Computed example of a mutant assay.
Amino acid sequence: MSTVSQMKCACESCLCVVSLSDAVTKDGKSYCGEACANGHPAGEGCGHTGCTCNT
């Protein structure tokens, strides 16, 4: 049996893979940062290189 330590950000349009130890957790889901976790309220992306979420 293996333990999952990384998973894709729960934001549907986000391409990031996040370490569960570094993830922002909201409603039981893991996100790569506050922007994704909060649903991009100001229209901003996560800011990670190569990711175009919320654009």
Rank of each mutant, 00 (worst) to 15 (best):
D22G: 04
K29V: 05
M1R: 07
V4W: 00
V18G: 00
D27T: 05
T55Y: 14
D27H: 08
Y31D: 02
D22P: 01
L15K: 15
G39A: 03
A42T: 08
G47C: 08
G33N: 15
C51K: 09
E34S: 09
S21P: 00
D22A: 12
A10L: 01
S21V: 11
V4H: 02
E34M: 07
Q6H: 13
G50A: 13
V4Y: 00
C36V: 06
G39C: 01
V17N: 15
V4D: 09
C36A: 06
V17H: 14
A37V: 03
C11I: 03
S30E: 01
K26C: 07
C53A: 13
A37L: 06
T25W: 07
A37C: 05
C36R: 01
M1E: 09
G39Q: 02
V18Q: 01
G50Y: 11
S21W: 03
D22R: 14
T55S: 15
N38E: 14
L20E: 11
V18N: 00
N38G: 03
V24R: 04
V24C: 03
C32T: 02
S13H: 07
S21Y: 01
G43A: 08
E12T: 11
C53D: 01
V17C: 12
C11T: 10
C32R: 02
S5Y: 02
K8I: 06
V4C: 10
S30K: 03
C9T: 03
E44W: 04
H48T: 09
L20H: 05
H48L: 14
T52E: 15
D27S: 12
C32A: 07
Q6I: 10
D27L: 05
G28C: 05
V18I: 15
G45I: 04
C11E: 15
G50S: 12
V24W: 03
C14Q: 13
L20P: 03
C53H: 00
G47A: 10
H40A: 02
Q6T: 12
C36T: 04
Y31H: 03
E44R: 08
K26E: 13
Y31V: 02
K29W: 02
G45N: 11
S19L: 11
V18P: 00
M1K: 08
E12Y: 06
A37S: 13
G50H: 10
E12R: 09
G45T: 08
T25R: 12
H48V: 13
P41F: 11
